[in-house]
């Protein structure tokens, strides 16, 4: 008996809950850190980016309007499905990042735990970042954090899963919808993550994942009028200032975190604060 031939997976984009190939018909080879071929990934285009923004915008009212408890449950469900795919992620992260099994296991475990951490934040953000304002007059005034809207996320180039989850989870935990550009050279764990998202209870369009050339896709997202915020974490150094300039065209919020961020460190609330707006409501008090 000869050995069984394995079934190779086609790695595609994730837009609006579906898995299309790039409309451009392009793909690019992905290798491990030693140069061995792993797979062809879809090479997303401007049109794919715009489709992803449209999907994210369409999903925004439902996701931002869901109860925080519901969002928390949905995100926790994602962690459950992540855990079930643990071995697959260990293999993919190991191949993508060129790390030994033990190290890859630690990274995947940390990534799942990170997702759980953010899932638990959904119904605490308003308590911690909101306020009752003791104004000097007969008014009841309170402030609540609300999601900023559609966030374009340039995922870290090095940390293919832990880094990815560290930037995507806070965006959606806060009630935003996301268009994520995966690590250019290490995109496979991101595609597998999108399969996890598709089989959890996350509504289609809440997270959209594009693979391809970051420098090609990012400018379209930075200048897109229907994108409200931009996370530059995985932006190529040479492109950061240009992207910020484009973002100014519609006064986008820009998170300028450097790619050197150490994702194994315990996170704080800064990534949630970066993508929420504060809304202050006033009403008179009287009989």
């Amino acid at each position: 008996m000869s050995e069984r031939i394995s079934v190779a997976k086609t790695y595609k984009l994730y837009i609006g809950g579906a898995f299309p190939r790039s409309e451009s018909g392009r793909s690019y080879p992905v290798t491990d850190t030693k140069g061995a071929f792993l797979a062809n990934a879809a090479q997303g285009s401007r049109k794919d980016a715009r489709d992803a923004v449209a999907a994210a915008r369409k999903a925004f009212p439902g996701w931002s309007g869901a109860t925080a408890y519901n969002r928390g449950q949905v995100l926790y469900r994602v962690a459950e499905v992540l855990e079930g795919r643990r071995e697959q992620f260990v293999a993919e992260v190991g191949a993508a990042e060129g790390v030994a099994v033990k190290k890859a296991q630690a990274l995947v475990d940390a990534a799942i735990d990170r997702w759980v951490w953010y899932a638990g934040w959904t119904d605490k953000i308003a308590t911690v970042l909101g306020a009752s304002n003791p104004v000097a007059g007969p008014y009841f005034s309170f402030s609540v954090p609300e999601p900023t809207g559609v966030v374009a996320v340039l995922a870290p180039q090095q940390s293919s899963l832990l880094g990815l989850i560290s930037v995507v989870a806070p965006v959606v935990a806060a009630g935003n919808t996301a268009v994520v550009v995966a690590s250019q050279d290490r995109p496979l764990p991101a595609v597998t993550l999108s399969e996890v998202l598709a089989t959890s209870d996350l509504p289609g369009g809440v997270v959209n994942v594009l693979t391809g050339r970051t420098a090609e896709i990012a400018p379209w997202l930075a200048s897109h009028a229907d994108v409200n915020a931009l996370d530059l974490t995985g932006a190529p150094e040479a492109l950061r200032a240009d992207l910020e300039q484009s973002a100014a065209g519609t006064v986008k919020r820009v998170l300028r975190t450097r790619p050197s961020e150490d994702f194994t460190r315990e996170p704080d609330l800064s990534r949630i604060r970066a993508f929420v707006e504060s809304k202050t409501v006033w009403h008179p008090i009287g009989v």
Binding site: A131, N133, P134, V135, A136, G137, Y139, S141, S143, S278, T280, W282
Partner: peptide
């Protein structure tokens, strides 16, 4: 209405 305690 404006007040220093109320974010604007």
């Amino acid at each position: 209405r404006f007040d220093p305690t109320a974010p604007f």
